[in-house]
């Protein structure tokens, strides 16, 4: 309420300075509104901490995540020297969770980033050009929709074989169709607006019009949608590792750790559930963050 009144009150004394302050750029407006959303900010902070911890893991003075000990297997949380206990091979859980974040976040985020770029190109082309281009791209995308995403990821990974690169490829392929569909529908709705016609009437070619007038108006919604997919992607990646067609042991990865610790569920259930908790927290934060971004980017005030 207060913020709605202040700009108009400020515009009377000196017109020029007041309006300069009033007309903030679009992205600074988004930032200002995003910062007001406490839940989204908290989620962003948690995610940032996880990412920083993953990046700087070697400098954090942690135990070696690969060195096990037969004596110290499956210790509970709070054991001397093992703050989060140890896994079924006696490896330090804290170290493995933090190092595991490196791979998990990589496999969770990269496919969505790749898919975002590829699908934006496909979707914007389909939506802007229309006609046959649209039919070919969108019907091809529809074929991929015939398969449930989990099944598709498993099938592609299974065909390509286990490994990080192959899971990245299969997950990217899984996420291209949904993002393409969103990109296409947003673009074709923007395409029909008069300012695109006005730009065409100015003699701009399709490429310039897309760059200046289309991308700015479609990237926001596509980006928000892609953000909401990162949590799905993380869960899928964990699932692939869990099935043994993603990351290979002994590399630490949350899905794989959940898989190997599953045998210890009756011995030490809390430690066994920790990788799952990490997946849960990360995907929850990503979801809430994308919600916050979506409402912050909605500029109709």
């Amino acid at each position: 309420m207060a913020s709605a009144i202040s700009p108009s009150a400020a515009s009377s004394p000196s017109e020029i300075t007041a309006t300069a302050a009033k007309t903030r750029s679009y992205w600074s407006n988004v930032l200002r509104r995003f910062l007001k959303d406490r839940i989204a900010v908290a989620c962003a902070v948690i995610l940032l901490l996880l990412i920083l911890a993953a990046i700087f893991a070697p400098w954090l003075d942690l135990a070696d995540p690969y060195r096990g000990s037969m004596i110290k297997r499956l210790r509970p949380i709070g054991t001397e020297g093992l703050p989060l206990g140890s896994d079924e091979q006696g490896r330090d859980m804290l170290a493995r969770l933090i190092y595991g974040g490196r791979l998990t976040l990589l496999i969770g985020l990269l496919p969505v980033v790749f898919a975002f770029f590829i699908a934006t190109v496909l979707g914007v082309a389909a939506g802007y050009v229309g006609g046959w281009v649209n039919t070919i791209i969108m019907r091809t995308v529809d074929i991929f929709f015939a398969f449930p995403s989990v099944l598709l990821a498993i099938a592609i990974s299974g065909a390509l074989g286990a490994g990080i690169v192959n899971s990245l490829v299969s997950l990217t392929i899984v996420f291209i169709p949904p993002i393409t569909r969103v990109a296409e529908s947003v673009t074709s709705s923007v395409r029909s607006l008069d300012y695109i016609d006005a730009a065409r009437a100015s003699g701009g070619n399709a490429f310039t019009i897309v760059r200046v007038h289309v991308l700015g108006n479609v990237l926001g919604p596509i980006f928000v949608y892609a953000t909401s997919l990162t949590s799905v992607c993380m869960i899928l990646a964990a699932g692939l590792s869990f099935l043994g067609i993603g990351v290979k042991p002994p590399q630490p990865e949350w899905g794989l750790m959940l898989n190997t610790l599953r045998t210890a569920i009756y011995v030490n259930p809390i430690v066994a559930a920790l990788p799952g908790v990490m997946i849960f927290i990360t995907s929850l934060c990503l979801n809430l963050l994308s919600d916050g971004l979506r409402s912050a980017m909605n500029v109709k005030d």
């Binding site: 007309t23 679009y26 607006l193 008069d194 300012y195 016609d197 006005a198 730009a199 100015s202 003699g203 701009g204 070619n205 310039t208 200046v212 007038h213 700015g216 108006n217 500029v299």
Partner: peptide, 23 residues
């Protein structure tokens, strides 16, 4: 439609300057 015929992400000056720039 005066609203739909202006790109909401461009400033007024940029919208007016687009045509001359392209030409």
């Amino acid at each position: 439609d005066s609203y739909a015929s202006l790109n909401p992400r461009l400033t007024i000056a940029d919208s007016i300057a687009f045509g001359p720039k392209v030409q």
